[in-house]
Amino acid sequence: MAVDFSWSQFLWIVFVFVGVPSTFWALVLWAIFSKRRETAGTGPLGLWATGSTAAASGFVACAGWLSWSADQRGEFRGPGLPAPNAFPSWQVAACGATVVLLCLLAAHLSRWPKTGGHVAALGLTAGFSTAFCIEASTDVTGQSGVGVILCMLGWGFSLTLLILIRNAVVGRKQPAREP
């Protein structure tokens, strides 16, 4: 059962399910990476710009891929509210591939090679989950709120793992510095 979209409900859900966990994770990243002496790379984006770009990209990826649906019979639905709740597997795979590529791109554009990657992962997770909150704000059952939590956890862990692998690969390619 869906109800009309409510800005106050949307903002509350974003605050509780996206804002609070993202702020906590940003503080953890700050605590970890503020002690390191990372040298700046060649990317044009600072940490705030990296996170903001990634958040906007995550929102657009979710809204762009998951606000419409095409079924096996060729029928098209959307975009609009309520959002579709059934998607062909190719559409979900394309959405996931888009998010992964956008995360790697945002990490690559960051001036800070390692920290910027983690900020990109956090920003993309927050942006994607914020778009998920649009549907959650129209759901009276609360099940969409659980979906937002699972979205935050799933993308958060997956993109962080992706960035850890990326940082390990990039770290191997850089020449060793002499003391």
Rank of each mutant, 00 (worst) to 15 (best):
S8W: 13
Q9I: 15
F10W: 11
L11D: 05
W12H: 10
I13T: 07
I13A: 05
V14A: 07
V14T: 05
V14G: 02
F15Y: 07
V16M: 15
F17M: 05
F17D: 02
V18M: 07
V18K: 02
V18F: 06
G19L: 04
P21L: 14
S22E: 05
S22G: 13
W25A: 15
A26T: 13
V28D: 08
L29G: 01
W30H: 12
W30R: 13
W30P: 00
A31Q: 10
I32L: 11
I32S: 04
S34R: 14
K35G: 13
R36P: 00
R36W: 11
R36V: 10
R37C: 10
E38I: 12
E38C: 04
A40L: 12
G43L: 03
G46C: 06
G46I: 01
L47M: 04
L47K: 02
W48H: 04
A49W: 00
T50R: 01
T50K: 00
S52L: 01
T53M: 04
A55F: 09
S57I: 00
V60D: 05
A61L: 10
A61M: 09
C62K: 10
C62D: 07
G64W: 08
W65I: 02
S67F: 12
S67P: 05
S67D: 11
W68H: 12
S69H: 08
A70E: 13
A70N: 11
A70K: 07
D71I: 15
D71K: 06
R73C: 09
R73Y: 15
E75D: 15
F76A: 06
G78A: 12
